[in-house]
């Protein structure tokens, strides 16, 4: 168990359900999920498509609300917060890395990374510049600061997204299939980068993936199926479990 586990959890999910209504049909996406994530953990959420990975990340990221149950982030019950407070929580506590990068196409790399800092209004111009340049240096894009997203490769764009997610020094970073749109080598680089930042900065990472190679880097793999958590495994256990699953097929 990681030393961080001893601290109070940064994410605590208790008996959470989430239903989507499609016309007259109610589709359950999560069915009674319990999960605790502690500061400094590097957790992978694994499972097949439709298992509820993205829904779970959305609830943790306060961009969606649970149908029932309690979702606590950084000690705050998200159901008790107003829309404004939720936005504030996202801005100051959580960083997002999206599968499709989701960069603002009309802003440069530098401006995209700087944007959350501008929303926070905590740092002055020089401090922002220093912080952004430092992060771009870390993700290896210092020479691309003035480029627009459409002038970058997929891997470079995702590195910008990583920099944007980390620029506010959030306690928690959520990454929804961060390598899904990247080739294996670039994907590996992104995971290495996230891992490095996790170890250096102590930032908690929760990322969803169905790629076994990506799971290997996690401290723990939470397996989801049909909206339920099957188990919480170490990467080697997860690898074995996946191998067994593959043989079964």
């Amino acid at each position: 168990m990681n030393a961080a586990v001893a601290q109070s959890p940064i994410v605590s999910i208790t008996n959470v359900t989430k239903d989507y209504t499609l016309g007259k049909v109610v589709v359950p996406a999560l069915r009674g999920v319990d999960l605790q994530v502690h500061p400094g953990e590097f957790i992978s959420i694994a499972g097949p498509s439709g298992s509820g990975k993205t829904t779970l990340l959305n609830l943790i990221g306060c961009v969606d609300t649970a149908t029932s149950g309690v979702v606590s982030v950084a000690g705050q019950d998200t159901k008790q917060l107003t829309e404004r407070q939720l936005t504030h929580l996202r801005l100051h506590t959580i960083g997002f890395i999206f599968q499709s990068f989701n960069l603002v196409s009309v802003l440069s790399v530098f401006q995209n990374v700087e944007f959350p800092l501008l929303l926070q209004r905590k740092l002055d111009k020089n401090q922002r510049k220093e912080r952004v340049n430092q992060l771009l240096e870390q993700v290896g894009l210092a020479h691309h600061a003035k480029h627009r997203p459409n002038e970058l490769s997929g891997g470079q764009r995702q590195r910008v997204a990583v920099a944007r997610a980390l620029v506010t020094r959030p306690q928690l970073v959520l990454a929804d299939e961060p390598t899904a749109n990247l080739d294996s080598v670039t994907g590996q680089h992104i995971i290495d980068l996230m891992k490095e930042l996790n170890q250096k900065e102590g930032t908690t990472f929760i990322f969803s993936t169905h790629d076994a190679k990506v799971m290997n880097h996690a401290n723990a793999v939470v397996r989801l199926a049909d909206g339920k958590i099957l188990d919480r495994l170490t990467p080697s256990e997860a690898k074995r479990a996946l191998a067994v699953g593959a043989e079964g097929h």
Binding site: R84, R90, L91, G95, F96, N102, V104, L119, T168
Partner: peptide
């Protein structure tokens, strides 16, 4: 829409 969602997700308030 996706851009608006992203900006809201990373912490942009509705007023902005």
């Amino acid at each position: 829409t996706r851009e608006i969602g992203t900006l809201r997700a990373i912490g942009m308030q509705r007023t902005r």
